Computed example of a mutant assay.
Amino acid sequence: MRPELVGTIDRDQWSVTARYNSLRPFFLLALGDPAGTRLYVSSRTGEIALDTSRHERVWNWLGAIPHWIYPTPLRAQADLWRDIVLWVSGIAILSALSGLWIGLLRLRPRRYASGAMTPYRGWAAWHHLSCLVGGVTLLTFIVSGWLSMNPN
């Protein structure tokens, strides 16, 4: 197991953020260890700017990257990425609000003739009531993410 120079890169999925600009370009080294570690060594300063493992890269491709709409070509264009995230979040907020509104229209605190608060029975009733709770949670989650982008 000897370190191997994979190549020289300016920007990739893991080094896309602007905080690495003063260190670019990087020598990308594969350590050849069981963890699949890769080191990003600044060609300007010689310092190790970043390290990633295979485990981190796989889970990020499955989680953080799709969640934050974070592919490198889009993320490299910060203004476009921000606009897309804000628009997608805005559409998701409207969708969640419409689902909550429909669910609330079907909810009757004064009860239906059957004595239930929902017109549905069995699993459909559970779906209706649990989605009202889940919808509030979802809406809170989406709005907090949208606000974290500082839309105004």
Rank of each mutant, 00 (worst) to 15 (best):
E4H: 15
L5C: 12
L5E: 15
L5D: 12
V6C: 03
R11A: 14
W14S: 13
W14D: 09
S15D: 01
S15R: 01
Y20N: 02
N21M: 01
S22W: 01
L23W: 02
L23Y: 12
R24V: 08
P25T: 06
F26A: 01
L28P: 10
G32R: 02
P34A: 09
A35R: 14
L39K: 09
Y40N: 13
S43I: 00
G46I: 07
E47V: 15
A49L: 02
T52N: 04
E56M: 10
E56V: 08
N60W: 04
W61E: 10
G63F: 02
A64E: 07
I65W: 06
P66E: 04
H67L: 14
H67G: 06
Y70I: 00
P71R: 00
P73W: 03
P73G: 10
P73E: 07
L74V: 11
R75L: 15
A76Q: 14
A76K: 01
A78D: 13
A78V: 15
R82E: 02
D83T: 10
I84E: 06
I84K: 04
S89H: 08
G90E: 01
I91S: 09
I91F: 13
A92N: 05
S95H: 06
A96W: 06
S98W: 05
L100C: 07
W101H: 10
G103F: 09
L105M: 06
L107R: 00
R110F: 07
R111E: 03
S114V: 09
S114W: 08
S114D: 14
A116S: 09
A116Y: 04
T118I: 01
T118Q: 01
P119N: 11
P119A: 11
Y120L: 06
R121C: 00
R121D: 04
A124V: 05
A124T: 10
W126D: 08
H128L: 10
L129C: 10
S130A: 15
C131L: 08
V133G: 13
G134E: 14
G134W: 14
G134C: 13
G134N: 15
L138G: 13
T140C: 12
I142W: 01
V143H: 00
W146E: 05
L147D: 03
N152S: 15
